[in-house]
Amino acid sequence: MQLIYPKAPANGAQVLRPALQAALQSKGFGVNRQFAQATAAKVSLSEPYRGYSLSLDDLAQGKGLKQATLGDWHYLVFSDGVSIADAQLAQVGGQVEFASLNHGALAAATVNALNLAENTPHLQGRTYELRLLFVSALHVAAIWLHASDEDVLIPIEPTPKHLASTKLYSEAALLALLAPAAQRVKTTFDADTTGQLGG
């Protein structure tokens, strides 16, 4: 399996490095052990790939990946070959700026999902664009392998286990699992008159 990447902003890594260096020096709250032990000299970045979001309304209405909206650029941060964080850049008015650094399970889960895909026989010899899909209202994240004739989705943490396990799904199979949950959450939101549940 070969991964391809969208054309990224030329200065993405330059924008990211100062934020990474500051984070490595502060070693603040919530930093995982590998990140806390990393040094700037040993840190490397993956190729950047895009995040996408699918809204609760679209999912509840049975709409698919074509409705997903473009989000941030994501970079996996490695130290000594181990994934230690997911770094995000936002594109604002043609410029990129540092958005966030996720020290949680997202980076390791992404690598594990890609290893799973790499070892799946029917994906061998295929080329996919690497994407990351979020359905925020359901706390769902998934690796999205996109080709012109096929979309393969692998749910990763923090996706709740009762919604989907970490394995390969077609677009139709994963959305069929998520749509009923989306309809239930949307019904709850729509019934809320306090305005405290969001939209």
Rank of each mutant, 00 (worst) to 15 (best):
A147C: 11
A108Q: 07
N119L: 12
L178P: 11
G125T: 04
P158L: 06
A113S: 05
E129Y: 04
F98P: 04
E118M: 10
S100L: 06
I143V: 08
L101Q: 02
A108V: 01
D151A: 07
L123G: 00
N112E: 00
Q183W: 12
P158D: 05
T187H: 15
L178Y: 08
A142E: 05
L106K: 14
L153R: 04
L114F: 08
E118F: 13
L168Q: 06
L101V: 02
L123F: 05
N112R: 05
P158F: 11
R184A: 15
V152Y: 02
L175D: 01
V96W: 02
N115S: 09
W144F: 12
T159D: 01
S136E: 12
A108C: 06
H162I: 15
L133T: 06
I154N: 09
L106M: 11
L177S: 09
L132E: 13
T120M: 08
N102Q: 14
V135T: 06
E97A: 14
K167T: 10
A176P: 07
L106P: 07
L178K: 10
N112Q: 03
L175T: 00
T159C: 06
A179E: 07
V135A: 05
Q183T: 10
A137C: 07
L130M: 10
A107P: 10
V96S: 11
S136K: 08
F134L: 12
V152R: 00
G94D: 08
S148N: 13
A173R: 05
T166H: 06
L123M: 04
E118T: 11
L114P: 08
S136V: 08
L174P: 02
Y128C: 03
L132G: 14
E150S: 04
L132A: 12
V135K: 02
L175Q: 00
H103G: 12
S148K: 15
T159V: 08
P155M: 00
A142S: 08
V152N: 01
L153H: 04
L153T: 00
A141L: 09
L133P: 07
T166K: 05
A141Q: 11
P158Y: 09
Q124C: 00
T159E: 01
A117C: 08
